[in-house]
Amino acid sequence: MRRGPDVRKSAAPEAAGVAHRGMACAPGPVRRRCAEEPDSLMTVELTLRGRQKMVVRDSVLDAALSLFSEVGYQKATMQAIATKAGIGIATLFRHFKTKASVLADLVRRDLEELFSESQTLLDDPPEDPKAGITAFCLLMVTILDKRSKSIRLKPTLWPATSTGRAETDEVVRYADAELRRQLTALVKYYQKNGTISDAFKAPELAAIIFYVYNSYYVEFNFGLIKTRAQLSKKVRESVGVLFESWT
């Protein structure tokens, strides 16, 4: 199997598990065996705190998603989110300073899931660059199917455009940067294979693809493109036109 472009970032200790000098440490009785490994114990404790933080985060996001769907974003309060999540208001504010930051993290969670799916495509891309880039763009459209779709302020438009709020605009920047990063890696992969001309700089080609995708995404959300089938057709046609001068 071909190996696609590796654009994954190094896994954090929380995700990779804990290893220290060849010995893994864990809480409970195993801590005694780690008595001579203070650094390892500290890492275990940090890992556990990180996991506990993620559990609370997901609990809050699930509760907020349910509440936003029930009463709407504007009517939901931080106290109601805390109550639904089964935590105190002080605990909630330790994790999220504002309701907008809860909304932002809901969308970020969906984006992280989406970019993990697109990484799978990057790990083993189709041989045909047109097919690969078209598949990537159409995969990005599935953000519309994610959990946060029903509660966004402008149901599906952001994170394609600025919102005017620091918390949510940070998510817009994250989505923009990660999409461009993955597209650039995909273009470089095809240039290395000789299926896209290396006369062009990969980031510039990726920027053009991004512009085309983003334009159609916005049009679809404004109802100018009526169906997913029409959206898919336009993306395929545009990528085909681009490749007439790239190959």
Rank of each mutant, 00 (worst) to 15 (best):
E178V: 12
V107G: 01
T120E: 06
G86A: 07
E112H: 12
L186H: 01
M78C: 10
A104T: 10
I81L: 11
D124N: 13
Q182V: 14
Y174H: 12
L121M: 13
V172H: 11
E170L: 10
A135Y: 00
L138A: 01
A104Y: 07
L111A: 07
S101H: 15
S101R: 15
K84C: 02
V141Q: 12
L153R: 08
A131Y: 07
P129E: 11
A160Y: 05
R147D: 06
W158E: 08
T83V: 08
P155H: 03
W158L: 11
A80Y: 11
R147M: 00
K154N: 10
P155I: 04
R181E: 03
D176S: 12
I151N: 01
R152W: 05
F136T: 00
A135W: 00
K84F: 02
I143V: 09
K99Y: 08
A177T: 13
A85H: 10
E127C: 06
T91N: 13
I133Y: 00
A166T: 15
R152T: 01
Q119S: 14
A177Y: 15
K146M: 15
R173D: 10
T98G: 04
G86W: 15
D123K: 04
I143R: 07
S162C: 01
S118I: 13
V187S: 07
P159R: 05
E178H: 08
A135Q: 15
I81E: 13
V171F: 08
M78R: 12
L179Q: 07
Q182I: 05
E113F: 12
V171Y: 03
K146G: 02
R109G: 14
L153S: 12
R147S: 04
W158P: 04
I143T: 06
L92D: 07
G88R: 08
I143S: 06
S118P: 01
E113K: 09
D105K: 11
D145F: 04
R173G: 10
A100I: 00
K154R: 14
L186V: 01
W158R: 10
C137I: 04
R147Y: 00
S116V: 05
A177I: 05
D145G: 02
T142A: 09
